[in-house]
Design a protein around this nucleic acid. Structure first.
Lengths: 222, 222
DNA sequence: CCTCTATCACCAAAATCTTCATCCCGCATC
DNA sequence: GATGCGGGATGAAGATTTTGGTGATAGAGG
């Protein structure tokens, strides 16, 4: 899964690329508009799944690049320091999929990337953990080939944990990211759904509880 | 990991820089707004991970600098003597990541810095001491590649000591920072958990006892 | 109105924490 | 060199907190 990072600021570019790679993508940095324009013809760039584009670019600015990217069929997320509505509207009107204002949270960027990839049908279609396969397109889960019936929240929870395997989540974090930022309820609710997941998928060992903290889906001993 | 310190009061600036460096960051002091504005163009400043900015600055005030810092993609923590709500709201609205009122405790500043770096994806996600690796995202600890199972308090304690290596902590300090400010209990309790850490990680030599005082995690001879 | 889902309350079970008693070490004194 | 002392280390038991499982209830959606 290739992602173009069209950003002239080397340190920001590196920061993004590093994080993209950590998240399992292949990052492809380009540092100015003209270079990007030329590279889009190459096979290496042409099959990119997404482009992160700085609006302020030397050579050819981000908005001008839109045309080329559209022709290549690559969806765009703009990165910019301008948070004024004018740029935002301009960008989205021009066909960008999303818009992020610097300095941004990397996790938020990753989430938005996932969303865009999903929306444009380029997302990872399947996530596998042990003998469990999550098909994001079909919205279905199978264990050892057999269909497992998960309720909506259970499914969300599983995807969240499986997409960030080995990463620890606090109950609050899970509530915030699955239930919504302003959810006001017991954190113990998470326990119940974790319990369901463990039972349905036989993940008693796979989803590890971190006492006083939260949960983590482990995938070492595969 | 570079941190800009934009603060006109030389003694405060030095105090902060000294502590940042002791904590393993590279501190970069700047003493007025215009100097900061100019320097942001330089490569040295441009790849900073964070900026600590005094609101009251000669040349160009902290709020005005926000725009430049944002363009550079550098997150900001404001330092200020004003604790009035107006400034605080103004600052956070302008996009600051956090806000500290002088006089502040250095340790608190360090904690907040860690948080911001973490949040914006610039944080070190791993801390290494000898053959022990602490992965903050995974909330896991490995020694020579093998997983070590730590209880919550042990983990907290280890992170605290490892993040501030070579720094001595009194038992009271540790109780306050890990157990909570209002903890009422024996200071000897700390001993027990230190003991567990030493045993589990074979840190008998690494975590040194400072008689009549407390403990320190040493890591000189690496 | 019925069905399915999410949430919460409750208790048992597990894990974790604190305290205490004891042991050990280094040091100063005799 | 023996003895007493201040501090620190260690092990274990009891206290406390946290988690897991289940069923009742509320609420959404058809």
């Amino acid at each position: 899964m290739k992602i173009l990072v069209i950003e002239d600021d080397v340190s920001i570019s590196e920061l993004i690329c590093m994080n993209l790679e950590a998240a399992g993508y292949e990052a492809f940095p380009l540092f100015d508009g003209l270079e990007a324009e030329r590279s889009l013809g190459d096979a290496v760039c042409h099959d990119a799944a997404l482009a992160l584009v700085d609006v302020m670019l030397p050579g050819k600015d981000g908005f001008a690049l839109m045309e080329d990217l559209r022709r290549a069929g690559i969806p765009v997320i703009y990165l910019t320091a301008k948070d004024d509505v004018v740029s935002k509207v301009h960008g989205l009107k021009a066909g960008a999929e999303d818009y992020m204002v610097k300095p941004f949270e990397i996790l938020e960027l990753l989430v938005r990337i996932e969303k865009v990839l999903e929306r444009t049908g380029r997302g990872r279609e399947k996530i596998q953990v042990r003998d469990v396969v999550i098909d994001l397109k079909e919205h279905s889960v199978t264990k050892a080939g057999a269909r497992v019936c998960l309720k909506p929240l259970e499914y969300e929870l599983l995807v969240m944990l499986a997409a960030n395997r080995n990463m620890a989540f606090s109950r609050e974090e899970l509530l915030r990211r699955i239930w919504g930022v302003d959810y006001m309820g017991e954190t113990r609710t998470v326990d119940v759904h974790i319990g369901q997941l463990r039972k349905k998928l036989d993940f008693h060992e796979v989803i590890r509880t971190i006492s006083k903290t939260g949960y983590r889906l482990e995938d070492w001993g595969e």
